[in-house]
């Protein structure tokens, strides 16, 4: 018991991933097309927008715009995928399909369910990121061998947001409440130095941006991709780890209240 919570068992939790795999085996177009969205963004920037923007400054390097945006898209896609899995999809399972009521009559506990669903979001995020990174490499957008670490970085982003999304969903009472998710996600997607550098913001706004969780992920992915690696990145990673752990504790308590009262 930690903080009054039963610890999850990875051995049991993996069967939650197994269930999702069975479902996606039948709905494979969903799984297969999931990787396309960031690729379309990358393509649109490479073919069009990039010519309008020119070169962008990052950590003393002058980067082509597509080089600047590609790793940010990788991080943003990891966030978006994890949030989709743990908000809309999870709400459906929790409130509409009541998927877990049957599950909790088996040896699985609420903590196992939480770990399993977060694990699924992370696994899916990592697989998509690896595919995306492969495309980036083929387009010559992975100049440094550190770039390989973008996959674990994306998995970390997926973890932090999956746990947070799950905690948030446990408070949702209706589909309308889920609109709040978009209201938090869209600005994060647009303003986390994803599409233009931090220098576009006036002083205090730049500080705000640097405090957002996606900014940590974008900075991690971009730095690793380009190879401008320093110890300060550990802080960005630690931010995401702590965020994920805190959200998991909240999630554990909430699910226990919702499902095992």
């Amino acid at each position: 018991m930690v903080l009054g919570l039963a610890l999850p068992s990875p051995r049991r939790a993996r069967h939650v991933l197994g269930r999702n795999l069975v479902i996606y085996r039948r709905a494979w177009p969903l799984l297969a097309t999931g990787v396309l969205e960031p690729l379309f963004y990358l393509l649109s920037i490479g073919l069009g927008l990039g010519h309008l923007v020119g070169r962008v400054d990052f950590a003393g390097h002058e980067l082509a715009y597509k080089q600047f945006v590609a790793p940010a898209l990788l991080a943003a896609a990891a966030m978006n995928g994890a949030i989709l899995d743990t908000t809309y999809n999870l709400y459906y399972k929790l409130k509409i399909a009541k998927t877990y009521e049957g599950v909790l009559a088996t040896p699985l506990s609420t903590a196992d369910v939480a770990l399993g669903e977060i694990g699924w979001a992370v696994a899916r995020g990592a697989a998509y990121s690896a595919t995306f990174l492969g495309v980036m490499a083929a387009l010559g957008l992975v100049p440094s061998p550190w770039g390989l670490c973008c996959v674990p970085a994306a998995a970390l982003v997926a973890y932090a947001f999956a746990a947070t999304g799950m905690a948030a969903t446990s408070y949702m009472r209706s589909w309308q409440d889920l609109d709040i998710v978009a209201l938090a996600l869209v600005p994060m997607f647009l303003f986390s130095a994803t599409f233009y550098p931090l220098t576009a913001y006036v002083g205090w706004l730049a500080v705000v941006v640097q405090c957002t969780p996606l900014y940590q992920g974008v900075l991690l992915a971009r730095s690793l991709d380009i190879g401008t690696v320093g110890w300060s990145l550990a802080l960005n990673a630690a931010y995401l780890v702590v965020m994920g752990l805190a959200a998991m504790v909240i999630t554990g308590r909430r699910l226990e209240r919702l499902l095992a009262a």
């Binding site: 479902i23 998927t99 049957g102 009559a105």
Partner: peptide
Amino acid sequence: LGVVPQQDTLDMEL
């Protein structure tokens, strides 16, 4: 233990 709850909690997606 086998449990048959009041409401069938079957997995509708399967």
